[in-house]
């Protein structure tokens, strides 16, 4: 630890690093930072969106797919991958606990632009039916955990389950209104189910939804909590997939390239 520096030489070295950190930007200036942070929005937002689409496409699209069983599991796993990779990159390079939040903020912008123009304006689905989930809240806490633990292992162990819980909890708040029971076609359906029937999806038949219908494994009817625990476990796995991407597909090749210079 830095605080425990013993020798004078070591102390001297750290003072030099401090001077280096506060050195004036000369040949390169803040414009570089600006260009970097802004251009990366599209790359990072796109990567996050594609990863989510790949694993959790329909679950993130429709309110009537956001079921108690699969939605918390699949979205938690699909959305933690890129935040984890960016956490590694930004922490290692600049000691910024910002990778997850940066991904979440970029993803938020991409998702809303896509939903608004592609699905609402062009396809005329109401936004109330096709709103995207937001992972910003969960990402802030994931970055905060990294800031406090300074360890990717601890962040994965605590952060994975907390991620699963928070992604679900933050998006359950807007979903709640759509889970109210309604009377439609002589059945009791949730408002979300009604949206799924009323706003016609010719190529997404209702039977494709994965809705828990009750089985011996639906532990005392508390599917929700079993799912969250399971979601937490797969989120830990997702976190390490992200770490792999950050370490071996991003940072490692760059280091190698720099060494050859």
């Amino acid at each position: 630890m830095a605080a425990g520096t013993t020798t004078a030489g070591e102390r001297q070295r750290r003072l030099e690093l401090r001077a280096l950190l506060n050195k004036k930007y000369k040949w390169i200036d803040r414009k570089w930072d600006l260009v970097f942070w802004i251009t990366a929005i599209f790359v990072v937002g796109g990567a996050a969106d594609i990863t989510k689409q790949l694993f959790a496409g329909d679950w993130d699209f429709w309110t009537d797919w956001k079921d108690p069983q699969w939605w918390p599991v699949i979205t938690a796993f699909a959305t933690i991958i890129i935040p984890s990779a960016l956490q590694y990159i930004q922490w290692v390079a600049w000691r910024f606990p910002t990778g997850a939040t940066y991904t979440a903020v970029c993803f938020f912008m991409c998702a809303w632009v896509g939903r608004y123009f592609q699905w609402h304006v062009a396809e005329s689905y109401p936004l109330s039916f096709v709103w995207p989930i937001s992972i910003v809240g969960a990402a802030i806490i994931l970055d905060w955990i990294l800031l406090k633990t300074r360890s990717f292992i601890l962040t994965s162990l605590f952060g994975g389950p907390i991620w699963a819980l928070l992604v679900w909890a933050f998006n359950y708040v807007p979903l709640a209104a759509y889970l109210q029971p309604a009377h439609f076609m002589n059945h009791v359906l949730t408002v979300a189910d009604v949206q799924g029937i009323v706003y016609i999806r010719s190529q997404t038949p209702e039977y494709l939804r994965h809705i828990e219908r009750g089985a011996l494994r639906s532990f005392l009817g508390e599917t929700q909590y079993v799912s969250l625990v399971f979601g937490g476990t797969v989120a830990v796995a997702g976190y390490w997939i992200g770490q792999f991407i950050g370490r071996y597909l991003a940072v490692w090749p760059i280091r190698r390239y720099i060494k050859t210079l």
């Binding site: 830095a2 950190l21 050195k23 970097f36 000691r95 300074r150």
Partner: peptide, 21 residues
Amino acid sequence: RTVTNLAVTTQIGINEDAPDI
């Protein structure tokens, strides 16, 4: 800032947040 931070982080351990620096 990113550039000077990188110059420092490459010289210290990955688990260090180095408040002294």
